[in-house]
Amino acid sequence: MKESKQRPGDPVGSALDIVGDKWSLMIIWNMIMHGKHTYNELLKSNEGIATNILASRLAKLEAAGLLTKETHPDSKAKILYRLTHKGIDLLPALVELMLWAHAYLPIHSAGDAYTKLLKQNKEAFVKRIVEDLKNK
């Protein structure tokens, strides 16, 4: 996989080189919030990602150190994807994107209710999820 070119002094651009597409962020979100850790689980997510896009994004995220892959304990034919600490640390940014979308974009009513709950105590939510993920 071709490495992303670095943009010294441009943190937003550098971050977007790695996670600046819908699919990379959706993969990370599905891993964090929905516990999806195999190729097939991610493929069957509601967003409808194509197989070639999923494969390339997983490889890109692994190359960037946001996730690792290992043999699944139940089947040597399956691969288990796990977020690294670096990948888990994207949760606060994803939460902020979610809150921004809630404020400015039309969203599904289920997401609306979830976001309203999140607004009540964002810091506690993020801390709990991050601690749970890092202790696995």
Rank of each mutant, 00 (worst) to 15 (best):
P73D: 08
I18E: 06
T38N: 09
L118P: 11
R82P: 05
L118I: 08
A63F: 13
L66M: 09
I49E: 03
A103I: 01
I79P: 11
T71M: 05
Q120F: 05
Q6M: 08
R7I: 09
D17W: 00
L66N: 11
I79L: 15
N121K: 03
V126F: 02
L16I: 06
G65I: 09
A50D: 04
G13Q: 07
L83R: 14
L54C: 12
S14N: 10
M33W: 08
I32G: 04
Y39I: 00
D74V: 03
P11M: 09
L99P: 01
A77M: 08
M26Q: 05
K136Y: 14
E41H: 05
L61Q: 06
G35L: 07
I129K: 09
G87Q: 15
Q120P: 01
K22C: 07
D21C: 02
E41Q: 13
L94Y: 15
V12R: 05
K60C: 00
K127F: 05
W100T: 06
T51I: 14
R128M: 03
H37F: 11
I49S: 01
A63W: 10
A50Y: 04
T115M: 08
F125L: 08
D132H: 14
G13M: 07
T68C: 15
Y39N: 01
K22L: 15
D17G: 09
N46W: 03
V130C: 03
P11Y: 14
D21T: 04
I88Y: 14
D21A: 02
K116A: 07
I18F: 02
L25A: 10
K69I: 14
D132T: 09
A59W: 02
E41R: 06
V126R: 04
A55F: 08
K119N: 03
H34Q: 12
G20W: 04
L42A: 09
F125Q: 02
H108Y: 03
V95A: 10
V126K: 02
K136F: 14
K78E: 14
L105V: 00
G20D: 07
R128G: 05
K127L: 01
E47M: 04
I32T: 06
A113H: 07
N40P: 01
K122G: 00
A101W: 04
N52E: 02
D74Q: 07
L66D: 13
K5T: 06
L80Y: 10
A15W: 13
